[in-house]
Amino acid sequence: MALYDPGLQPERTELAWRRTALAIAVGSLVSMRVLPVMLGSVLWMLLGVAGMIIAALMWLAARARYRSGYRALHDNEGKVALPDGSLIAVTALFSIGVGLVALAAVIVTVAP
């Protein structure tokens, strides 16, 4: 009995992770444009650069995750492990980081 389901679940999952990485990349590009102007320092641009790097790494990790899952589903002996939750953890940590940076930006702009 094969584990493989002929549906397109792995492909849809990879596309969802690509959209997530693309959204992070677009948000990072916007922050590179807006934050230095709004907060008055070019150093805020580094956050956008960090976001672009994370988006690129997420894109590559999503592709590797797809390949791993594809192999696991097509392996008749079931010896290949399914992908873990590392992309979810990275996305959660990135979101927490963005929230903390937003809080810092509010504190910097509101403080006299």
Rank of each mutant, 00 (worst) to 15 (best):
A2M: 15
L3P: 12
L3G: 15
Y4E: 10
Y4H: 11
Y4N: 12
G7T: 11
P10V: 10
E11G: 02
T13M: 10
E14A: 08
L15P: 01
L15R: 14
L15K: 12
A16H: 07
W17A: 05
W17Y: 09
R18D: 13
R19C: 13
R19N: 14
T20N: 05
T20I: 09
A21T: 05
A21K: 07
A21W: 03
A21D: 01
L22S: 13
L22W: 01
A23V: 01
I24Y: 01
I24T: 08
G27D: 03
S28A: 15
L29K: 11
L29F: 08
L29E: 09
S31V: 06
S31Y: 01
M32Q: 10
P36S: 13
P36T: 14
V37C: 08
M38N: 10
M38L: 15
W44C: 11
G48S: 10
G48T: 08
V49W: 09
V49K: 10
V49N: 09
A50M: 13
A50F: 13
A50E: 13
G51L: 03
I53A: 15
I53P: 01
I53T: 11
I53D: 03
I54W: 02
A55T: 07
M58P: 02
M58Y: 01
M58D: 02
W59L: 13
L60H: 10
A61Q: 03
A62S: 13
A62W: 01
A62T: 06
A62V: 06
A64N: 04
R65C: 00
Y66G: 04
R67A: 06
R67W: 04
S68T: 07
S68K: 08
S68W: 01
Y70F: 10
Y70T: 05
A72C: 02
H74E: 03
D75W: 03
G78M: 08
G78C: 07
K79E: 09
V80H: 02
V80S: 03
A81D: 09
A81N: 08
L82C: 00
P83H: 03
D84I: 06
S86N: 02
S86Y: 00
L87S: 03
L87I: 05
I88M: 06
I88F: 07
T91Q: 07
T91C: 05
A92I: 05
A92H: 00
A92Y: 00
A92G: 02
L93P: 05
L93I: 12
F94V: 00
I96M: 15
G97F: 06
G97Y: 02
G97H: 03
G97Q: 07
G99I: 13
G99Q: 11
L100E: 07
L100A: 14
L100T: 08
L100S: 11
V101Q: 12
A102P: 01
L103D: 05
L103F: 14
A104H: 12
V106H: 13
I107F: 15
V108P: 00
V110E: 09
A111R: 14
A111M: 12
